[in-house]
Write a protein that binds this DNA or RNA. Sequence first.
RNA 1: GCCCGGGUGGUGGAAUUGGUAGACACGCGGGACUUAAAAUCCCGUGGCCAGCAAUGGCCGUGCGGGUUCAAGUCCCGCCCCGGGCACCA
Length: 922
Amino acid sequence: MEYRFRAIEKKWQQQWREKGTYRVSNDTEKPKCYVLDMFPYPSGAGLHVGHPLGYIASDIYARYKRLKGFHVLHPMGYDAFGLPAELYALDTGQHPAVTTEQNIRRYREQLDNIGFCFDWSREVRTSDPSFYKWTQWIFLQLFNSWFNRERQQAERIPALVSLFEQEGNIRHECPGDSSLMFSAAAWQGYDTQKQQEILMHYRLAYCGYGEVNWCEALGTVLANDEVVNGVSERGGFPVVRKQLRQWYLRITEYADRLLEGLTRVDYSEAMKDMQANWIGRSEGAEIRFALDVPSAAGAAQPYLDVYTTRPDTLFGVDFMVLAPEHDLVDTITTREQRPDVEAYVNYVKSRSERERQAEKQISGCFTGAYALHPFSGKKIPVWISEYVLAGYGTGAIMAVPCGDERDHRFAQHFDIPVTNIIGEAYTGEAANPSKDAILQNSGFLDGMRMRDAAAAVVRRLEDTGQGRRKVNYKMRDAAFSRQRYWGEPFPITWDNGVAVPLDENALPLELPHVEKYRPGPEGEGPLANVESWTSRHLETNTMPGYAGSSWYFLRYMDPHNDQAFAARAATDYWNQVDVYVGGTEHAVGHLLYSRLWTKVLYDLGYLGFDEPYKKLINQGMIQGSSRLVYRVRDSNRFVSAGLKDGYLTDPLHVDVNLVEGMELNIEAFRQWRPEYRDASFILEDGRYLCGSEAEKMSKRYYNVVNPDDIVEKYGADTFRMYEMFLGPIEQSKPWDSKGIEGVHRFLKKLWRLFADEQKGWIVTAEPPSEDALRILHKTIRKVEEDTQRFSYNTAISQLMICVNELTALDSHSRAVLEPLLVLLTPYAPHICEELWQQLGHDTTVLDAAYPAAEEKYLAESTVKYPVAINGKTRTDMVFPADADAAAIESEVLQHEVVRKWMDGKAPKKVIIVKGRMINIVV
RNA sequence: GCCCGGGUGGUGGAAUUGGUAGACACGCGGGACUUAAAAUCCCGUGGCCAGCAAUGGCCGUGCGGGUUCAAGUCCCGCCCCGGGCACCA
């Protein structure tokens, strides 16, 4: 009667599959719980032990909620469109659909091995036409919508058109071009093409020309969050800025809504900070400076708008700086300065994004032009410099060297005199960004605290029409097109430069089959090579990887619906995702985009909620633990780690599977690769010990551990529990098989509570002892609390304590063991099912109810209090658990040890912490 | 540079949020069973000091100060590690 985990796990996985144990319906009165994992991109490498970490965590929660009586939606699917499959296709000629299918099959096998409770009948794949039909459909909703700033919500384009017809765009500033203004009459006078052009500037999904992150090596544009340190996140290829026609999502319109929503969701503070910083809201003022350039008689005075968060420093402006790409540069540059300015602009253009970020030297050039201070009329020189970014604010700044470090460095570098408006707070050495100094040299602001002066300046500017309060965001609109094949086609045709949406009934617009994946002409995608595609004037770009993942969680609610992305009844029932588990790497990409899509669908009336995820759990990464051997330089001798300091060595990665703990299996190592066949070794204590290092789990470090191998050796239940026992889920840690034996031992010990090798099943019908009940109920309480708050490692510790104690008590009472099984089921479902069945139940343990802890067993009958005098512990005293403070106090003061230590003095204070501590202050 | 986390035994990590620091597990040491091994079980295991012993004392949560009867936990100032952002005016 031993614990035969392989047979047990196989049996139950098969049974769950055959009986459809985890299938959930949409029609029920039960309370719901939606537990979601970030679906994986099925890569060719398969799963390593790091991937299931989050899946195990969510699986435990899903099973726990089910035992608590909830109707649990716990689905899984695949983010199946994407670059790697296409790059692989370019190399090998294998169609991405084929390799993706293969990879999915492998993922599924590996996932099935671990015993998850996914409802596979709801599986989705973003590359499936029945799925991307609705991705395209949602795109059309975005295309046909605009953001009404007055109401702070998305509305349909026809509503905007009728507004234009009645009143032009007076009340609805154009988000794509704030200088655009027209009356109702003007609107009616525009031809269709012009009207469409204007509408494009309002649409939430729009096509425009813009500077994009172009990655030549990948042959496509990338969104801002896909560029890291000036190179592509995927592959690390150089990225340059380039003007291209692109599709965008107008996410900037939702900046405030996205910020506001963060206050209503349960994400970690770190995650909220990351999103808030990415959105980067700042409050300040836009200020208009007249330009001191000769203008033709009757023509309007030319001006320069700047954005500042510090209008209070307005009198400290010593120069202005434009981004080199700024529109005005060409018109204001004087004849004498033109050669220098042109040279500088060319220099800036020649610098790659990489160089710009790597070497931030001070550089710039005077344009020869001057602006006029709005209040003092002082002449202020206008410069250009690459430290001012074209894409933020107005692409121009007012420089206040005494208050801003960058401006100060610039002034020093170019010998521009600095005006001091904060007296002693400015030393002349460095800028002082304080907001608390008292203003001087500041006209009508003199004597005011800077903090208070800002509002006064803005008021004056607004009165005189020279500026206004302004909020700015760092976030830019999201680039939404890729020049690739393996993605969702846009449901758009082009008619003389006008984008025409396909009829909804024509969806899905299916991706045509191609044989070759090379890019099309002029930076266009592979679809531009497809005759049948271009002849219909279809858009040749495809959607980016994050399109499908922006809404997939909605499809799970009603995955087979071909009338809608999901029936409203289904989305109303399942509602928000209660718990979403995934890595932090999606903080500013996927998470932000899916929040945006949800808000738009909500605004348009398709959903009853506008935040997709109620609670977010970020699991840490499991790093690889690499093993290193030390080869003596220019030899084939290897020296053990402890002795390597005596030699000149080169560390080399060795396959972790050839190492047991730290000890190298020398024979296996010799077999591993031909060049090591004749290797010799310098041993310590007769063994060769390796070094180790925590690194990303990757083939090239030979440190990948496949979950299949662990499951084969110890079983899925052990694997699940061990991954959770390793530490808190949010924490990253290197994989280490060392402790897994302990968890395996625990399950064997559990098994022995039920079965004896000789005697067989030993569970009794006898009533349990008080002691057994006490440990059981304590365990129920603790495990439930810990499971609820995802503190799985401590829950498992408690389960171990419980099993240890029951073993020590030799307690085999059914009345204790049954509830214990229910507690343990979320963690180790296979063994629990088996034991449950052995106890004679004909239903699965998953239909059981989670046990409740009984108060009477939770209190210990007696409590040991340490008695301390002035903080020093002197003795222990034992009291009944329900003793009241007064009784304890009088008894303690009678105690002989206490009286001896107090030496006849009266206590100043007696502190009794319930069930903890007695402290007497003398 | 800025914004978040975090530093606890040989190791992974607990600590009811101010109440006996080191739960649980690994590892290690000792022992039992065994011809032997595996498996299993029991005991010990932060450091230093005293004692034959039961035991007792001192020190101890990155460093230095502080608040408190009581600090891993709170406050001030440093050091180090991890993550995010980075010329955003």
